[in-house]
Design a protein around this nucleic acid. Structure first.
Length: 581
RNA sequence: GCCCCCGUAGCUCAGUGGAUAGAGCACCGGCCUCCGGAGCCGGAUGCGUAGGUUCGAUUCCUACCGGGGGUACCA
């Protein structure tokens, strides 16, 4: 991973040569790492410690031998042995100057990467279009979006995808709910609850008129659906599940028609909420249009059967998922002949694999039980186990002043994601979620986040960016002669705060690579905060616009490079990088 | 019962086998004639418990304790 760093490639080669010259066994990995303590240099290697046992020598003796034979590349100024046998390397002025100039010359923090050609599909959120998004969806939205951005940054072809569950019994139930609401009738327990239902009903009435809620509505159902850009559906029965408990208060046909239209209204609202959070999907995949209005499910069942992955028992068709790590085999087609939801999922998997080489799912912990059968289904379809990657995120506890904010739809105290974004802002919301690893169950305290808004970490980072922008503006206003980066003499940067900033800037490529590899957005937020802190210290201790023009020029370009890196890191997180705040 | 995740500072969270375990918030004390004080500097406390692997464990393994989530011919 870090071996893509040209410095480490050269240094690794030099170490290999030194090991050979010293008659020491080769190592497969020099084990480079960034020391925590700046006194330990820019890079360290623990190979002497690791080699102690196989070489049957003291680590320090190994380190001595390596150093004695080591021919340092130009980018490395010095090496010293420290502690039990660490090799500590220090980058050269030449390397640092080149690093700063490269960032400014390309106008981009990151070194160019080679395109991998790998098509990666990242699916996240995918909440049902029968209700609003909650705070947890916001987390998957922020993380999925940033992970997608990271994967693109390291050279993959990335698609952000949202799977819309706009078919099945839930849509019929949603339709029933809307019709009853429009009529002012009471709802049953199984119906959807919440103020949003009224809003959707109102929207439908505005779009289509009151007749939409009547049994003999204008036009045929296929026509209504066609108006949405979809294909006709069979409206005479319930092919994808049953409708509620059959209240008998309206026809299935009516419930389905209103449910489909309502789901589309709802989906647009979800899209809007996500957009407000800065998340825009490439693909909104309609289950109904892509899977049920086509032969996708039947074709998939045929494929699975042809592969010998299915069998019939008690009249139902089972998929042999247990052979691929699932707890038990799963039903594809019920004994009554109706395909299960899982069958549609298999069809969706098949569709996805036709479009992508690698599938990433960002899922909530409440869906973790689904992963085994999904991976098993992928295996049954003939795909390698690693081609499907499920990232399970832990839940978000929404609090207000330390007290759980009741997420009861029934009681009407349900807090929607859109409210949170309105209340605390998109940047703050996103950054809060991106700051933690997926494995951590998070608290999101509305009162606290809002209250701390002025001291929020995201502002700390953004402020650093705005401060540099202001600095560069002021320099221009005063006619400061900054010259070009190529003319600047970066050897003038000898202050500890300057050295710290150079060292921090040098890390950006590896931080991004590691964050992408691990799908760990918190690596980026931490780095952004470290970099901002390093800059603020530099800014406090080293005045840029000084009379000593040579020194001022070097500092000016150093600051400009820092701004570029901050801007690009925030860009990867899809958090804004303001020039003024 | 079985499966997954977590337990690190008063609070929210970083730390994918390395050197003295970090940041923000909160608390106390300093720093603006000077490029933005939304900033900087200084100050206290911590790896749930017990074993194991390793030159080295917050990190890997086992057990236990505590918390969260999941275990459909539902969608």
């Amino acid at each position: 991973m870090t071996s893509s760093d040209p410095v480490l490639v050269d240094l690794g080669a030099a170490i290999d040569a030194a090991l050979a010259a010293a008659d020491l066994p080769p190592v497969d990995d020099p084990a480079f790492e960034r020391p925590r303590d700046p006194d330990h240099g820019d890079w360290a290697s623990t190979l002497a410690l690791r080699l102690a046992k196989p070489a049957r020598m003291a680590p320090r003796a190994i380190a001595d031998a390596v150093v004695a034979h080591l021919d340092l590349p130009d980018a490395v100024a010095s090496v010293e042995i420290a502690g039990p046998g660490f090799l500590n390397f220090r980058l050269s002025d030449d390397h640092n100057a080149t690093m700063v100039r490269d960032i400014l010359a390309r106008g981009r923090a990151l070194r160019p990467v080679e395109r991998t050609g790998e098509r990666i599909n990242v699916e996240f959120v995918s909440a049902n279009p029968t209700g609003p998004l909650h705070i947890g969806h916001g987390r998957w939205a922020a993380v999925g979006d940033a992970v997608a951005e990271l994967l693109a940054a390291v050279g993959h072809e990335v698609v952000r995808e949202y799977y819309v569950n706009d078919a099945g019994g839930q849509v019929v139930t949603f339709g029933e709910t809307l019709v009853l609401t429009a009529r002012g009738e009471v709802l049953d327990d199984h119906h959807y609850q919440g103020r949003y239902v009224t809003r959707v009903a109102t929207q439908l009435r505005a779009d289509w008129g009151d007749e939409i809620f009547e049994e003999e509505g204008p036009g045929d159902l296929p026509g209504w659906v066609a108006a949405l850009g979809g294909e006709a559906v069979d409206d005479t029965d319930a092919p994808h599940g049953s409708a509620g408990d059959g209240t008998g208060r309206m026809s299935h046909r009516l419930a389905l028609r209103v449910g489909i239209l309502g789901a589309e209204v709802m989906r647009q609202r979800l899209e809007g909420t996500l957009h407000d959070l800065g998340v825009d999907f490439d693909t909104w995949f309609s289950e109904r249009r892509e899977l049920h209005d086509t032969d996708a499910v039947a074709d998939t069942l045929a494929d699975l059967e042809a592969a010998g992955a299915t069998y019939v028992e008690d009249g139902a068709v089972f998929l042999r998922t247990a052979e691929h790590g699932d707890d038990k085999d799963r039903v594809l087609v019920r004994a009554n002949g109706v395909p299960t939801y899982f069958a549609a999922d298999c069809a969706y998997l098949r569709n996805k694999f036709a479009r992508a080489d690698h599938l990433v799912y960002i899922l909530g912990a409440d869906h973790h039980g689904y992963v085994a059968r999904l991976k098993a289904a992928a295996a049954c379809l003939g795909h390698p186990p690693d081609a499907l990657e499920a990232r399970i995120g832990q839940m978000v506890n929404l609090l207000r002043d330390g007290e759980p904010a009741k997420m009861s739809k029934r009681a009407g105290t349900f807090v929607e994601l859109s409210q949170v974004v309105d209340e605390v802002g998109a940047d703050v919301t996103r950054y809060h979620f991106l700051r933690s690893g997926l494995d951590t169950a998070l608290d999101f305290d509305l009162a606290r986040v809002a209250e701390q808004s002025m001291d929020n970490p995201v502002y700390y980072v953004q402020y650093a960016h705005a401060r540099i922008s202001s600095l560069l503006r002021t320099a221009d206003e005063r006619g400061f002669d900054h010259g070009t980066p190529g003319e600047a003499d970066f050897t003038r940067l000898v202050h500890p705060a300057e050295a710290d900033l150079l060292r921090e800037l040098d890390k950006v490529d590896e931080v991004v690579a590691a964050a992408a590899e691990l799908r760990a957005t918190q690596r980026l937020t931490r780095y952004a905060e470290d970099l901002a802190a390093t800059f603020h210290r530099f800014y406090t201790e080293c005045r840029v616009l000084v009379d000593d023009v040579e020194l001022g020029r070097a500092r000016y370009h150093l600051a400009a490079a820092a701004r570029q890196v901050l801007a690009d890191v925030l860009g990867l997180l899809r958090v804004s990088a303001p020039d003024r705040m």
